[in-house]
Design a protein around this nucleic acid. Sequence first.
DNA 1: CAGTATCCTCGAGGATACTG
DNA 2: CAGTATCCTCGAGGATACTG
Lengths: 227, 227
Amino acid sequence: MHSYGQYCPVAKGAEIFADRWTPLILRELLADVHRFSDLYRGLPGISRSLLVSRLRQLERADVVERRPAASGAAAGYHLTEGGRELRPVVMALGEWAARRAFGDPEPADLKPEVLMGWIARRVNRDLLPDRRVLVRFDLRDTPKRWWWMILEAADVSVCRQDPGFALDLSVTAGLADLYRLWLGRVSFDEARADGSVRVEGATALVRAFPRWLGLSPLAPAVRAGAR
Amino acid sequence: MHSYGQYCPVAKGAEIFADRWTPLILRELLADVHRFSDLYRGLPGISRSLLVSRLRQLERADVVERRPAASGAAAGYHLTEGGRELRPVVMALGEWAARRAFGDPEPADLKPEVLMGWIARRVNRDLLPDRRVLVRFDLRDTPKRWWWMILEAADVSVCRQDPGFALDLSVTAGLADLYRLWLGRVSFDEARADGSVRVEGATALVRAFPRWLGLSPLAPAVRAGAR
DNA sequence: CAGTATCCTCGAGGATACTG
DNA sequence: CAGTATCCTCGAGGATACTG
């Protein structure tokens, strides 16, 4: 970690926070991603060794704590109390960018596996019905179009193969359209109205789906910036 | 500027903000430092070419605007409206660090010329008397001990030579003590009580001095973190 | 004062293969 | 799954001298 050689809180904070990849690693940890492989998959472009090195730096700064596998619990990285207090910093940065540095998506920034992970993690599980729901996403403009999401109160998981049991809902959208919706650049009503996102299935489920879908925590800021 | 290749506000914000030196440059601009040489002097350790390159990046990001010299006004760098909106981000980072990553000063972090600049810029000029006040600082544990500060409602300036006119106040302190005071780690009363900072001169001026001295904007957070 | 131009260094981090 | 070990590259940025 680079030292600025200044006795100033902004300098000390920047030494810890303002390093390549670190804000994104904190974003993942704040979104309750804890396992090394999940962090790695959520940050395409980082190398395994750089991720390890950043996590070690954050451990030394008392922001992250590595919990070895215990009975029942998998090993993983967790924010300390001090680390959790970085949420307002990450949010302030994201809110600023949502308003001031966030345009329409560039194709190179759109990654189906990243978006599917974001969506799955933010599903409002307490609003789900008392049974397993299977949703298929058809990202019609991508090479590997089909994604399945299994929604249960206990867990939401994503897979690339048809799990084989009965489909409840089918969502059809362009990749950019689904990104725009989840990030709040367009509302569900707008996306439905212009046909960019289509949801099909039993009427009750189609109606419930928008409530299950938890948008990005930055969706309100993106929405405000898009007007 | 490095791209993270993600359509996410935190990523886009980090591309602009979370780069080496950038948070400190923004701190200076937010503190109304505008001239290239003043920015350079406030960031010991940066090279001229790196400062130029960071300022250019911030111009491209629409955060900074370079105003060429006009009649009466010197050339300088100014925050755009979007740039000024980064203040909550810089403050959130500083407040976090003040609470969680800010201990007692390391000798290598203490630089008299930096601290004198900070103090001069934050003097409460509207509380000054209706005349010029000359204050001499004796940083008794540093090689170049003597600093003079000329306080006027219109401007506060620092110099290394005795300006020659009558001295109003004399402040004697160790360098670390003066840093601790200005950053809020100790209060004026505590510093006076333990003798770490001594102020001498006419009684009325000695009484008024603590009100003239505007502490760091992060002093409340440092104070809260130091207990 | 406010930079630019040139040359060069070194260390951050990538690529790849391997491991408990 | 969660890393470590090794080797190597390249580009960010330092040093220095110069300029309108």
